[in-house]
Computed example of a mutant assay.
Amino acid sequence: MVEKENKSLSSVYQEKFQPDYYIRRYYSGLDAGNEFCLHNLHQFFKQAESNKNTEGAAKKVLEVGSGPVPIYIISASQWTDWIVCSDFLEQNRHKFNEWLSTGRKADETWLPYARYVAHLESENADQESAFLVLERARRSIRSILPCDVLQSDPLLGKADTLFDVIISVFCLECAACSAEEYRITITNVARLLQPSGHLIMMGGLEGEYYFIYDRKIPRIKLTREMIDSALEDAGCRIVTWEELPRSLRPPDLPIDYTAMFFCVAKKKLLV
């Protein structure tokens, strides 16, 4: 039954998910939820940068489920120039590649987000600084790969490396059809991490759906305990946990979670 449900969900995404609509509906302007994600990512990579000189070789970052949205790897691009983005949907990869190849002409939508990150990096940041952090992000991206987190190798054999940091934003709970399948996605993604690497996840707690046009898209109803247990099964332990109550999000967004979470989990040396 779960397999049938998953095939159905995959078909819905392939047929109904339109990147331009998604960007207009969910990224029409910088809000408290975006700031929550970007601030916490900045803090993580700022700390990682301070440790960089003692850690040796260049680090590798993977974003799982990038969608058509380039903003969540901006802070990572200050830490490394080796970033791989990925998504299940061809139309999202196409939209991301379009942004990647077009340059500043494609940056208007993302400038408020980039400006926010630029101000986190420097009090003297201005409009040009926003363009520069987006250009830095572009230069850091090595490839945009197909990805299926329900597979034991989510990158489908397209990458021959393990990663030091994996970022996933509102992805894993939307790909699974059951709590057990969610645990499987966590395990699959964690296989791509180096020992002692970090998995960064952001998403919504207690939510069961969001909308694409008039289509209600189901999500796994996540709790802190469910996430903690799934990570433990995957050989990881939570080292950072932050929450943002839903009351600080725009009330008209067609998504029903009660709070956003930011979670950093570290992979154990021995699994």
Rank of each mutant, 00 (worst) to 15 (best):
I144H: 02
V169R: 04
K59S: 06
A57H: 09
L120V: 09
K216F: 07
C177T: 10
I167R: 00
L41Q: 08
T80W: 05
I23V: 15
S122G: 09
V149T: 13
K59Y: 06
H42I: 04
D81P: 00
S196L: 14
L38T: 03
M202G: 05
K95M: 14
E123R: 15
Y213L: 08
L162Y: 05
L30S: 05
G235M: 05
L269I: 02
D252T: 09
S196D: 13
L156A: 06
L222W: 02
F44I: 08
V264E: 10
R215F: 13
V2F: 03
L192F: 00
A230K: 02
E15W: 01
L193E: 02
I184R: 06
E3D: 07
E173A: 13
D126Q: 12
E181L: 04
A32C: 08
Q18A: 15
Y21H: 11
Y182D: 04
T80C: 04
M202L: 12
V117C: 14
V271M: 05
H94L: 13
Q18C: 14
F45S: 02
Y210T: 09
L145R: 12
G204L: 06
A234I: 11
K95C: 10
A106K: 08
I212Q: 12
S8Y: 12
P68N: 03
L270Q: 07
K16Q: 09
